[in-house]
Design a protein around this nucleic acid. Structure first.
Lengths: 224, 224
DNA sequence: GTTGACAGGTGTACGGCGTACACCTAGCGT
DNA sequence: ACGCTAGGTGTACGCCGTACACCTGTCAAC
């Protein structure tokens, strides 16, 4: 069913993907879809996960910089294969397992490359903007120790599972909270992250300017 | 009316802004709105322009880096003031005068700072992602010499008007086409732009890594 | 002072949307 | 033989954007 939805979106665009239209495509009555997804939002989440699943896995043998580059470009390729994906990803606020998994593995690449958890945190933010646009809250803390209602034991189990599944994200979150575990879940300082990435770019711009950088335009078809 | 729409969106979110709801808010029948905008898309365009209008004007006395930084942060503030604005901006593909004006003035700041038209082009792309997310086509060439139908004279007049209004954008477009004016309108090499910005970031990351960068977290409340 | 254009508000209607709710049916473990 | 359950059905409600025909007040030109 998700496959059908993705194909339909590829064919007619995301706006034309309605529960009714998708049902028709599947030769089924609209309400039948609700036996598989709770609502349309969940359908979109699923579709996004399909696209994210197309991102090639990390190659741990690669140097961190090459590895990250390859990973991000692979993500870009996946998104470009489905023109509707960018908009869909940006409209989602949920952190599905696919999103968390991708983030965690990317964070792992940085860590193995010698980045501190702290620095990893910030560069992930800076990169986040590049990978899926302007989604500050994307990195906000998942409910590892935030919500109160569920029983303390369930809570523990959930946290443990999270720690096992996404060790790097947890590590980063802890680092971001300054080692103060109780503060985990308060979210990031978005303004800091924004300026961090902005200044990184501006400094890069300046370096290119002083060295008289110019694109290879004109000779051959450009770009190496 | 645009003011009312913006206020409504601020109050109840962009999804709840419907022609009907907005009309009700204005004490008017839904169809009355269509005397002022052609359709809902145009309403959203107008709302985005209102937000863009809140961006503070450039201060030409500032150093380019300080100036760009101030401008981008001002844009961010405007967008943050209207939580719906990010999504709305990203969903628009039109280049309204407000967007073009902002881009042109930003490009001018780079040019005055000693950037070549070529480099300005690329850094604008790199920054574009930061300002309003992942909108590759935002910088695609406006129809300065692209569409065929309108009479050659009208065409000329339009191009002249564009050149006067947005000189820097034009300059950049020409530079991007490699001085070959006939090629203007073919759009940018998005893959190149993407990798350009990505590598700029990765290089910046590496520099921070080797110098053992760490956020000021822990002392005081962080961030200067 | 009449007239006619025009800006802008009105009312009705259509087709599409997401989805709540009640119902049906086939297959299967007991 | 029986009840559970996964999954498909049909109807209905209240939203949405907007096409189309109509009305009303204002004001310039005659």
């Amino acid at each position: 069913m998700l496959r059908a939805a993705v194909e339909l979106a590829d064919a007619v665009g995301i706006d034309a993907v309605s529960m009714r239209r998708l049902a028709q495509e599947l030769g089924v009555v609209p309400m039948a879809l609700y036996k598989h997804v709770a609502n349309k939002d969940q359908l979109l989440d699923g579709m996004v996960d399909v696209v994210l699943g197309e991102i090639e896995p990390a190659d741990p043998a690669l140097d961190w910089q090459v590895g990250v580059r390859a990973r991000v470009l692979s993500a870009r390729r996946a998104v470009l294969r489905h023109p509707w994906a960018r908009q869909a990803i940006e409209s989602r606020t949920h952190r599905t397992p696919a999103v968390l998994g991708y983030m965690d593995s990317l964070a792992g690449t940085f860590r193995r490359g010698g980045f501190s958890a702290d620095l990893t945190h910030h560069v992930m933010h800076a990169l986040g903007n590049r990978i899926w646009g302007f989604s500050p809250e994307l990195f906000d803390e998942p409910p590892v120790a935030a919500t109160t209602p569920p029983s303390a034991e369930e809570q523990q189990a959930l946290a443990a599972r999270f720690a096992e599944e996404y060790p790097h994200i947890l590590e980063i979150a802890v680092a971001a909270a300054g080692g103060d575990l109780s503060g985990v879940g308060t979210g990031c300082d978005e303004q800091f992250e924004f300026e961090f990435a902005l200044d990184l770019l501006l400094d890069g711009f300046d370096r290119l300017r002083v060295q008289g950088w110019t694109s290879a335009r004109g000779v051959a078809s450009g770009r190496a």
